[in-house]
Amino acid sequence: MSALHIAGLVKRFGALTATDDLNLSVAENELHAIIGPNGAGKSTLIGQITGEIQPNSGTITMFHTDVTRWSVPQRSLAGLARSFQITQLCQGFTAEDNVALAIQARQGSSFRFFADARKDRRLRDPARAALARVGLADRADRLVEELSHGEKRQLEIAITLAMTPRLILLDEPMAGMSHDESQKIVALLSSLKGTATIVLIEHDMDAVFALADRLSVLVSGRIIATGTAEEIRVNPDVRDAYLGGDA
C-alpha cells in the first residue's frame, strides 16, 4: 500500500522542464529520503506535492486519493504535513501560539468567536507537549523573533508533528542546525519511524543514510534510482550523475 504515489509528473517553467516525467512511490510508514544535487528540481517537486505549484501533467495520489487538483489546505487536512526549508512562522506570536494553531487546524472549524484561544487547554496542553518533544519546552512563551535560528528550525518540526499527520514532508529539516541540534532531530525522527510515512529531503548524508528505509535520487527533474542505502551507494548511475560529479 502506498502513502504517496506520483506518476508521470511534468512541470515546465517556460523552456525549463523542472520536473520531467517523474515517478515515485512511497510505501506506508516508510521513511523515504530524496536526495539530489542543487538544481535537480527538489523545490519544484515539493511544491507540487504540497499543492503550492500545479503540475502541467501527471497525477499525485495520497492514500489512494487523487489530490492533483487539491488546494494546499485541502491536502493538509487530508493528513499531509510539511516543514519549510526556510522557516515559515507567525512572527509576533509565541512559539506556543504557533504550535497551538497547528493543533487548532486539526480540531474542526475555527469559526469559533468567543472563547479565549490562549486559555483553551485543548490547544495549549498538546502544544506544550509538542514543544517538549523537540526540546523547546522552556521557550514556549518566547516570541518567534526572540528564538535563535536553530530553535526556529526545531519549532518548524514541532509544528509539523503537532498536525498529527499521516504523511510528513520534511524539507531539509536539519539545514542550519548545530551538530547537537541535528543529532536530537535524527533521534526524534528515528523514534517516529513506523508510526507515519515520512518523505525526507536532506543534504546531510550521514543523517539520510542512518534514517532512510529507501532513497530516491533526483537528477534533472527525474528519479534516476530508488533503493536501500546500500543499493544506492553502489548504483553506477548515481555514482556517475551525483556522487561522481560531486567528488
Partner: peptide
C-alpha cells in the same frame, strides 16, 4: 503574519 504557513496548516 504568515499566509503560507497558515495554508500549510490547513486553513
Amino acid at each position: 503574519m504568515n499566509e503560507r504557513r497558515m495554508a500549510a496548516l490547513g486553513f
